[in-house]
Computed example of a mutant assay.
Amino acid sequence: MKDIQIRPAGEHDFDAMWSIFCAHVASGETYPFTTATSREAGHAYWLGPDVASFVATSGGARLLGMYRLVPNQLGRGHHVANASFMVSPSAQGAGIGRLLGEHCLDEARRQGYLAMQFNYVVSTNTAAIRLWKKLGFSIVGTLPKAFRHKRLGFVDAYVMYQMLQDPDHWPTVDA
């Protein structure tokens, strides 16, 4: 794992990112996107304005996974981050998700976010749920039958949350 680098994503990464995105979307198990999602929509999701995306590469070349970091809400909810992650199917189980998750939490703190929220973690995605719990997230809500799983039909989705800083040390809020 020592030859793995995580760096900001760029236009030159998008073909590989699109390939990973399409593999996850085709599985129909973890993301609400459909196979009808256009390349342009995928590009906007990962590399659009106000999106901070990062990629994990092996030896500086092969793209192993990626994440995007954005505010969860506008205005008065802007202090809470939201992130999405995808690991290449050929790299799953190698710890790439954990590396990306740890990097993302550090990056969110560096950018000044005070908390992080995942709005839609599919309940059958047990590897992701286990990882997020190990990294300090808690399930704070269940959305009953909110995800239409390709094989299992309607399954629950979770909202997961983590404070990134002690709320007693958060900045004073203006009215």
Rank of each mutant, 00 (worst) to 15 (best):
S38H: 04
V155R: 10
A115H: 06
S27M: 06
S84Q: 01
L135A: 06
D15I: 12
E102K: 09
M1A: 14
S88K: 07
A94N: 02
G95A: 05
C104G: 03
K150Y: 02
P71M: 08
R62Q: 14
K133C: 03
T126E: 12
G60S: 00
A26R: 11
M163W: 02
H24A: 00
A16V: 03
W46F: 06
L74P: 06
S138I: 10
I6Q: 00
M163E: 14
N125A: 12
H78I: 13
P171H: 11
M1G: 13
K145F: 10
P49A: 15
V121G: 00
L99D: 03
A9K: 05
L135V: 06
P171A: 08
A146Y: 03
V155K: 13
H169V: 05
G60N: 03
A83K: 06
K2V: 01
A94Y: 05
S58N: 07
V25S: 08
L100F: 00
T142P: 04
K134T: 10
A127C: 06
G136P: 00
R148I: 09
R109M: 08
A94P: 04
P71I: 00
L74E: 12
A108V: 04
T126F: 07
I96D: 01
N125I: 13
H43M: 12
Y158I: 02
T57G: 07
V121H: 04
Q92K: 13
M116T: 00
T124H: 10
G28H: 03
H103C: 12
Y161E: 11
T35W: 03
T37C: 10
D3M: 11
A36V: 02
E11D: 14
F21T: 09
R39M: 11
Q73K: 14
R109D: 03
T142W: 08
T172R: 13
A157N: 01
D106Y: 10
F154P: 13
G59I: 04
E107P: 05
D166L: 11
H103W: 11
Y113P: 05
L69A: 09
G77V: 06
S84K: 05
S123F: 08
M116L: 09
C104F: 01
F154M: 15
K150E: 13
K134H: 13
P8S: 12
S58D: 12
H78R: 15
C104W: 01
D3H: 14
G93L: 08
G75T: 10
H24R: 05
Q165Y: 08
R109V: 07
H24P: 02
R62D: 13
M116N: 09
S123Q: 05
Q5L: 15
Y120I: 06
R151C: 09
L63P: 10
K133P: 03
H43E: 11
T57I: 09
V121R: 05
